[in-house]
Amino acid sequence: MLPDDDVATKVRALMVDALDLRLDPQDIGAQTSLYSPMIQLDSLNLLQLLLAVETEFGGHVEDEDVMEADLETVGDLIELVRRHVAGPRREIPA
Protein backbone atom coordinates (compact mmCIF):
# COMPACT_ATOMS: atom_id res chain seq x y z
CA MET A 1 0.00 0.00 0.00
CA LEU A 2 1.34 3.43 -0.95
CA PRO A 3 1.49 6.32 1.50
CA ASP A 4 -1.43 8.74 1.08
CA ASP A 5 0.82 11.53 -0.24
CA ASP A 6 2.18 9.25 -2.98
CA VAL A 7 -1.33 8.25 -4.06
CA ALA A 8 -2.45 11.89 -4.24
CA THR A 9 0.67 12.88 -6.19
CA LYS A 10 0.21 10.03 -8.69
CA VAL A 11 -3.50 10.74 -9.15
CA ARG A 12 -2.84 14.42 -9.84
CA ALA A 13 -0.10 13.54 -12.36
CA LEU A 14 -2.43 11.03 -14.04
CA MET A 15 -5.13 13.69 -14.27
CA VAL A 16 -2.76 16.06 -16.06
CA ASP A 17 -1.66 13.35 -18.50
CA ALA A 18 -4.97 11.57 -19.12
CA LEU A 19 -7.03 14.75 -19.40
CA ASP A 20 -4.32 16.68 -21.28
CA LEU A 21 -4.46 19.50 -18.74
CA ARG A 22 -2.08 22.40 -19.12
CA LEU A 23 -1.43 22.52 -15.38
CA ASP A 24 1.26 21.58 -12.93
CA PRO A 25 -0.10 18.63 -10.89
CA GLN A 26 0.86 20.50 -7.70
CA ASP A 27 -1.58 23.27 -8.65
CA ILE A 28 -4.55 20.91 -8.42
CA GLY A 29 -6.00 21.13 -4.93
CA ALA A 30 -8.04 18.47 -3.17
CA GLN A 31 -11.07 20.80 -3.04
CA THR A 32 -10.94 21.58 -6.76
CA SER A 33 -14.17 20.58 -8.46
CA LEU A 34 -13.74 17.90 -11.09
CA TYR A 35 -16.27 19.82 -13.18
CA SER A 36 -14.61 23.23 -12.81
CA PRO A 37 -13.22 25.12 -15.81
CA MET A 38 -9.79 24.00 -14.58
CA ILE A 39 -10.51 20.25 -14.90
CA GLN A 40 -13.67 20.04 -17.08
CA LEU A 41 -14.33 16.37 -16.35
CA ASP A 42 -17.02 14.68 -18.42
CA SER A 43 -18.09 11.05 -18.71
CA LEU A 44 -15.67 10.21 -21.52
CA ASN A 45 -12.58 11.62 -19.88
CA LEU A 46 -13.64 10.12 -16.53
CA LEU A 47 -13.44 6.74 -18.25
CA GLN A 48 -10.02 7.62 -19.70
CA LEU A 49 -8.83 8.74 -16.29
CA LEU A 50 -10.08 5.60 -14.55
CA LEU A 51 -8.34 3.43 -17.14
CA ALA A 52 -5.10 5.35 -16.52
CA VAL A 53 -5.54 4.88 -12.74
CA GLU A 54 -6.13 1.15 -13.16
CA THR A 55 -3.05 0.81 -15.36
CA GLU A 56 -0.84 2.83 -13.01
CA PHE A 57 -1.93 1.09 -9.82
CA GLY A 58 -2.58 -2.36 -11.28
CA GLY A 59 -6.11 -2.62 -9.93
CA HIS A 60 -9.70 -2.28 -11.03
CA VAL A 61 -12.38 0.21 -10.06
CA GLU A 62 -15.85 -1.30 -10.09
CA ASP A 63 -18.66 0.74 -11.63
CA GLU A 64 -20.57 0.50 -8.35
CA ASP A 65 -17.61 1.96 -6.46
CA VAL A 66 -17.52 4.95 -8.81
CA MET A 67 -21.26 5.54 -8.45
CA GLU A 68 -21.10 5.30 -4.64
CA ALA A 69 -18.11 7.65 -4.47
CA ASP A 70 -20.21 10.63 -5.64
CA LEU A 71 -17.18 12.21 -7.30
CA GLU A 72 -17.31 15.98 -6.99
CA THR A 73 -13.76 17.04 -6.08
CA VAL A 74 -10.21 15.93 -6.76
CA GLY A 75 -10.08 14.78 -3.14
CA ASP A 76 -13.08 12.50 -3.77
CA LEU A 77 -11.23 10.93 -6.69
CA ILE A 78 -8.07 10.46 -4.64
CA GLU A 79 -10.09 8.80 -1.87
CA LEU A 80 -11.71 6.45 -4.41
CA VAL A 81 -8.27 5.42 -5.64
CA ARG A 82 -6.97 4.97 -2.08
CA ARG A 83 -9.90 2.76 -1.10
CA HIS A 84 -10.37 0.66 -4.19
CA VAL A 85 -7.15 0.60 -6.19
CA ALA A 86 -4.08 1.67 -4.21
CA GLY A 87 -5.11 0.01 -0.94
CA PRO A 88 -5.01 -3.63 0.06
CA ARG A 89 -6.30 -5.94 -2.63
CA ARG A 90 -9.78 -7.26 -2.09
CA GLU A 91 -10.37 -10.98 -2.36
CA ILE A 92 -12.31 -11.93 -5.47
CA PRO A 93 -14.93 -14.59 -4.76
CA ALA A 94 -14.47 -17.80 -6.74
Rank of each mutant, 00 (worst) to 15 (best):
residue 1 M to N: 08
residue 2 L to E: 14
residue 5 D to Y: 14
residue 5 D to C: 08
residue 6 D to F: 15
residue 6 D to K: 01
residue 6 D to N: 04
residue 7 V to N: 01
residue 7 V to E: 10
residue 9 T to R: 10
residue 10 K to A: 04
residue 10 K to E: 15
residue 10 K to S: 12
residue 10 K to I: 10
residue 11 V to E: 00
residue 11 V to P: 06
residue 11 V to I: 06
residue 12 R to N: 10
residue 12 R to A: 08
residue 13 A to E: 15
residue 13 A to K: 09
residue 14 L to A: 00
residue 15 M to W: 03
residue 16 V to P: 05
residue 16 V to W: 05
residue 16 V to A: 08
residue 17 D to I: 09
residue 17 D to H: 07
residue 17 D to T: 14
residue 17 D to K: 11
residue 18 A to I: 01
residue 18 A to E: 12
residue 19 L to D: 11
residue 20 D to V: 12
residue 20 D to C: 06
residue 20 D to F: 09
residue 20 D to K: 11
residue 21 L to M: 07
residue 22 R to G: 14
residue 24 D to Y: 02
residue 24 D to V: 08
residue 25 P to F: 04
residue 26 Q to E: 15
residue 26 Q to D: 15
residue 26 Q to V: 14
residue 27 D to R: 06
residue 28 I to G: 07
residue 28 I to D: 12
residue 29 G to I: 11
residue 30 A to Q: 14
residue 30 A to C: 07
residue 30 A to V: 10
residue 31 Q to R: 11
residue 31 Q to P: 09
residue 31 Q to K: 11
residue 32 T to R: 10
residue 32 T to M: 13
residue 35 Y to S: 12
residue 36 S to K: 05
residue 36 S to R: 01
residue 36 S to Y: 03
residue 36 S to W: 06
residue 37 P to A: 05
residue 38 M to Q: 15
residue 39 I to C: 03
residue 40 Q to N: 08
residue 41 L to M: 04
residue 41 L to I: 03
residue 42 D to M: 07
residue 42 D to Q: 02
residue 42 D to T: 03
residue 42 D to C: 02
residue 42 D to W: 00
residue 42 D to H: 03
residue 43 S to C: 09
residue 44 L to Y: 13
residue 44 L to G: 09
residue 44 L to M: 14
residue 44 L to T: 15
residue 44 L to P: 13
residue 45 N to F: 02
residue 46 L to H: 01
residue 46 L to W: 05
residue 47 L to A: 15
residue 48 Q to L: 04
residue 48 Q to H: 12
residue 48 Q to W: 09
residue 48 Q to A: 10
residue 49 L to Y: 03
residue 49 L to A: 09
residue 50 L to S: 01
residue 51 L to I: 11
residue 52 A to P: 05
residue 52 A to I: 04
residue 52 A to Q: 11
residue 52 A to L: 02
residue 54 E to N: 08
residue 55 T to G: 07
residue 55 T to M: 12
residue 55 T to D: 15
residue 56 E to H: 04
residue 56 E to K: 03
residue 56 E to F: 03
residue 57 F to I: 01
residue 58 G to M: 07
residue 58 G to C: 00
residue 59 G to A: 05
residue 59 G to T: 10
residue 60 H to I: 06
residue 61 V to K: 09
residue 62 E to P: 02
residue 62 E to K: 11
residue 62 E to N: 08
residue 63 D to C: 04
residue 64 E to T: 14
residue 65 D to V: 13
residue 65 D to R: 09
residue 66 V to P: 03
residue 66 V to Y: 02
residue 66 V to S: 00
residue 67 M to R: 15
residue 67 M to P: 11
residue 67 M to Q: 15
residue 69 A to S: 06
residue 71 L to V: 05
residue 72 E to N: 10
residue 72 E to Q: 13
residue 73 T to R: 05
residue 75 G to D: 06
residue 76 D to N: 07
residue 77 L to R: 00
residue 78 I to T: 09
residue 80 L to M: 07
residue 81 V to N: 02
residue 83 R to D: 13
residue 84 H to R: 09
residue 85 V to Y: 01
residue 85 V to F: 00
residue 86 A to E: 10
residue 87 G to H: 07
residue 87 G to D: 03
residue 87 G to F: 04
residue 87 G to I: 02
residue 88 P to Q: 14
residue 89 R to V: 15
residue 90 R to Y: 14
residue 91 E to K: 12
residue 91 E to D: 13
residue 91 E to Q: 12
residue 92 I to S: 05
residue 92 I to C: 01
residue 92 I to G: 05
residue 93 P to F: 15
residue 94 A to S: 13
residue 94 A to F: 15
residue 94 A to Q: 13
